[in-house]
Write a protein that binds this DNA or RNA. Sequence first.
DNA 1: ATCGTTTATCGTAGATTTGCGATGAATCAA
DNA 2: TTGATTCATCGCAAATCTACGATAAACGAT
Lengths: 102, 102
Amino acid sequence: MKVLAEQPISENADQELARFAKALGHPTRLQILQLLDSQACCFTGDLVEVIPAAQSTISQHLKELKNAGLIQGEINPPRVKYCINKENWRKAKLLFTAFFEE
Amino acid sequence: MKVLAEQPISENADQELARFAKALGHPTRLQILQLLDSQACCFTGDLVEVIPAAQSTISQHLKELKNAGLIQGEINPPRVKYCINKENWRKAKLLFTAFFEE
DNA sequence: ATCGTTTATCGTAGATTTGCGATGAATCAA
DNA sequence: TTGATTCATCGCAAATCTACGATAAACGAT
């Protein structure tokens, strides 16, 4: 059986923040997140039209963002609609805010 | 002539934020930043005592944080005193805040 | 000049990341 | 069933990251 949301079982704040930060550590991934956050959601193809990279490359970045928990994909054949994972987005925001205000 | 603060000449917000995020994307570097921010500053040796990694490894992480512009080192022979780079720390905080609140 | 202390850098090995084209999987339409 | 569409995954190469021990560099003290 395939686990859908594959996040580590136990993780301290540092590890979680590092995981989020790492996912944000690439301009293309930032651009994807900004696009997903400005519009409600969008399909992979929409991103491919806007972002100057191969389809496979964008798909790979989407996978990493999904593994980091920052986005989620909903199958909508033959397309996949991606959205921000609001719960983790909020969690990331809190972690970053706390980090910079300690 | 050696340039001390080696940041790219021109960089858009995405690239800069990605650079900061990438530097934050490792637990050890987060720990270093937290230590530097809690105390005013400290020497490399102080970090080596607290963080479970080899001296050369920590020195390397310090270098990356310095290259990202998040910290700065002041030579105090035979030691080096590291501090948060407050200007860029503030800049990073603003970029992250803006990113999560757009 | 030599020694001890502190830190950076070098060299290396293994792991991970990045990017791409090619291919595969899933689905709908004809 | 055959195509067409959309997207993920595979396989690969190059680059970067990570960690470490060993060594070098800088300096004060003796």
